[in-house]
Design a protein around this nucleic acid. Structure first.
Lengths: 226, 226
DNA sequence: TTTCGTCAAGAGCAGTGCTCTCTAATTTGT
DNA sequence: ACAAATTAGAGAGCACTGCTCTTGACGAAA
């Protein structure tokens, strides 16, 4: 009676999913700015106030979509990664999968990597999902032989310590220099995608396929992938 | 009678400025999402419909603020640049000025480097202002001696041509490899700032001063600044 | 001085997020 | 099996939004 969900619980779970699906559909059409609770309710044939039994506010609905989007792009990256292949190819696959997902879901991408929308949505719920793409890159680094990178002596102490904390929590054995370079590569990955999607590359590298592919290789070199 | 503006024209220009100032003030408080025409009108002691004599829509007001923001961060970068100093110091000054401006005006920064807000604002009006920070970096590259970077043979043709067009329109003599690296550095600059402001660095490089300073140096190396 | 274009104001429309109350249905405890 | 407690949806309503249209007053040119 507790494990096997009651009919009401099943209905609730299903409706919650349907609401998110409808919201995602609308998000793809009109963007986060134009997402309307009433329109979602209309599409589902219910009245707007009923939605509040499932999501206490519009921002909470958006937060749910944010978490889903983080998981979606993370899963895209993970399933593009084939641990059997050589590290450089794995690196390339993850980068391109992330970009492909972003281009297929531009509004969802903007939701997670664009300007934060509400006052501040709780980041605590999202951090677990938010790190999946980065984690996939870490896995590649972990597995692959790295070209030795000379330790940068000018690395500031603050950064050295932050890198140390990161390698400890990730359970990976990387020098502070390499960890920092990986952070830069991670930044470069999403910086490139954002610039492409947000129109910053028009008049410079507008079809940015070649630029992105080249960036992918350059950053693989940069972190020391053989 | 035409050059020396009539009283009416002066009043119109002044009110246009006051409206933008009030909107900017409100933007800094509640963000683009919460910017309300009626609230702006209220602050100016006028009725909301009167604003439409100055800006035909809310999005047009935002577009005006976008152009102003591009110019503001561009000017911050330009005035931080001292052509008398050595190239690496100029590079550092520009990077830090851009970051400082962004941290002081987070909502204005989100307006220009975050997710595009309306359907699509005309980019044609903004491209002139949008390139000023990048142009400042180009100026530094132009002036400074560059460590020679071996030409990447794997540079795709599409990218080679895009780089050639860019160097031509910018009137600067750079190899396709260096031009591409400059584009990557430009991406890294705003990628880092966006990640910091949009909360992507929490739990990794949270006070990101050291990371940003290090990134600045690394990218100076990357483009070949001596 | 009269005419004409511009301006602020006001009312109003359609839409929004959200709250509250009411009724119907389902789950739960006895 | 029945009553009590919980949960669901419907509807009305509040305060707010962007935006349009009309009306009357003011300033500039003829």
């Amino acid at each position: 009676m507790s494990a096997t969900s009651t009919a009401r619980e099943r209905a609730r779970a299903e409706l919650t999913r349907e609401i998110k699906d409808a919201a995602r559909r609308q998000l793809a059409e009109v963007g986060a700015h134009g997402l309307s609770l009433r329109a979602v309710a209309r599409e589902l044939g219910m009245v707007s106030s009923a939605l509040y039994r499932y999501f206490p506010s519009r921002d909470q609905l958006l937060t749910a979509l944010i978490i889903d989007a983080y998981n979606a792009i993370g899963e895209a990256a993970e399933s593009a990664d084939n641990p059997g292949q050589d590290p450089r190819e794995r690196w390339r696959a993850i980068w391109h999968a992330a970009r492909a997902w972003a281009r297929e879901h531009p509004h969802e991408y903007a939701l997670i990597y664009g300007s934060p929308i509400p006052g501040y949505q709780a980041p605590q719920d999202t951090i677990a999902s938010a790190g999946r793409v980065a984690l996939a890159l870490v896995e590649v680094i972990k597995s692959g032989a790295l070209r030795p990178i000379p330790d940068s002596p000018e690395l500031p102490d603050q950064l050295r310590e932050q890198a140390a904390v990161l390698t400890a929590t990730l359970g990976v054995d990387l020098s502070a220099t390499t960890m920092t370079r990986l952070l830069m590569a991670w930044t470069q990955l999403f910086g490139s995608i954002s610039f492409e999607l947000f129109g910053q590359y028009v008049n410079s590298v507008d079809p940015s396929d070649a630029f992105f592919a080249h960036t992918t290789r350059q950053m693989a070199d940069f972190v020391g992938l053989v």
